[in-house]
């Protein structure tokens, strides 16, 4: 591989690396640099040593935002995967209009999350929302969704689940279609019913794609921001009041955004961003470890 032959390969990779260096690597290094300062977004840099990192370890709001992110992530990802699998099975067995259905399920994923966030805050509004209308219809008393800790989490995770079901189901559908038809025929001859076929054949053979979808969803949910930012409103710009009642919808990235861009505490904001990165790396390692063990 060495020698002249590799030159064109590297040259054709250059545009990507140049863009990566300018738009990704430089900002990442800059963020690492300002995490050691108390920079306010303008003016001079004052080196403060590891002060920001020490504060981060003892910052209850950071740990709360981490917990919120994980809880909302689980509440969004688990139902999303189950629904996506069901939708994929449905899409796989439809004979007519299959492309129409596929497009229809993908539409939530390509719709602006901000617009959807506004729609979902209406759905979950206390007095005039569809969510409470449904509760009312089945005889339950209404909930002040956006004013209770769990209500906020349910609302945010519903939005994020809803917007990813279609996308994930297309990935799973691709997995379903790559399963050899002969395996099903063999199972059918052996007298396996649809449920048995699903659990003994479809699911095990789908595992690689399910693992891929789980890893992508985990990384995505650890970085979730827009849903929480649009759906929770606050009276002031301070981070201590961000993410709705009791900071219940404060995700890690929303916390970082609020500290850096709303409060001009860029130094500490950068520190939180590094905290987020460490959490994402740990999450990915766990995922990788789990999948490696099983295969």
């Amino acid at each position: 591989m060495r020698g002249k032959r590799s030159v064109p390969a590297y040259l054709s990779l250059m545009p990507f690396f140049a863009a990566f260096a300018i738009f990704m690597m430089l900002p990442i290094l800059f963020t690492l640099g300002i995490a050691f300062t108390d920079w306010k977004g303008i003016g001079k840099f004052h080196f403060v040593g590891t002060q920001n990192f020490q504060y981060l370890l003892g910052d209850p709001l950071f740990w709360k935002s981490l917990l919120n992110t994980v809880v909302i992530g689980i509440m969004a990802t688990v139902p999303c995967l189950v629904l996506a699998t069901l939708v994929a099975l449905g899409l796989n067995s439809t004979v007519r209009f299959s492309n129409t259905y596929r497009v229809a399920y993908l539409i939530p994923n390509i719709t602006s999350l901000v617009a959807m966030g506004i729609l979902f805050s209406s759905i979950f509004s206390s007095n005039f929302g569809i969510a409470n209308a449904l509760l009312n219809w089945i005889g339950l008393s209404p909930i002040r969704w956006m004013q209770t800790e769990w209500g906020i989490k349910v609302a945010i995770s519903t939005l994020s689940c809803w917007s990813f079901v279609g996308y994930n189901s297309l990935l799973i559908l691709a997995g379903l279609q790559s399963i050899d038809k002969q395996v099903y025929e063999a199972a059918h001859l052996d007298g396996a019913g649809p449920v048995r076929t699903f659990f003994s054949i479809t699911l095990p053979l789908l595992r690689p794609i399910v693992i891929f979808v789980t890893i992508m969803s985990t990384i995505g949910s650890l970085q979730s921001f827009t849903e929480a930012q649009v759906m929770t409103s606050s009276q002031t710009s301070g981070s201590a009041n961000a993410g709705g009642v009791g900071n219940s919808g404060l995700t890690m990235v929303l916390y970082f955004y609020s500290v850096a861009f709303q409060e001009n505490r860029y130094g500490y904001g950068a520190t939180i961003a590094w905290g987020v990165m460490i959490v994402v790396v740990i999450g990915t390692i766990i995922n990788w470890y789990v999948t490696k063990e099983r295969s």
């Binding site: 009041n241 009791g246 505490r265």
Partner: peptide, 21 residues
């Protein structure tokens, strides 16, 4: 002070807890 909103946010946050929970 430039830090006014940072420092007063906890008060708004706690008032919200009083009224909602």
């Amino acid at each position: 002070d430039p830090n006014e909103n940072t420092v007063n946010a906890p008060f708004y946050s706690q008032l919200q807890l009083v009224e909602s929970s």
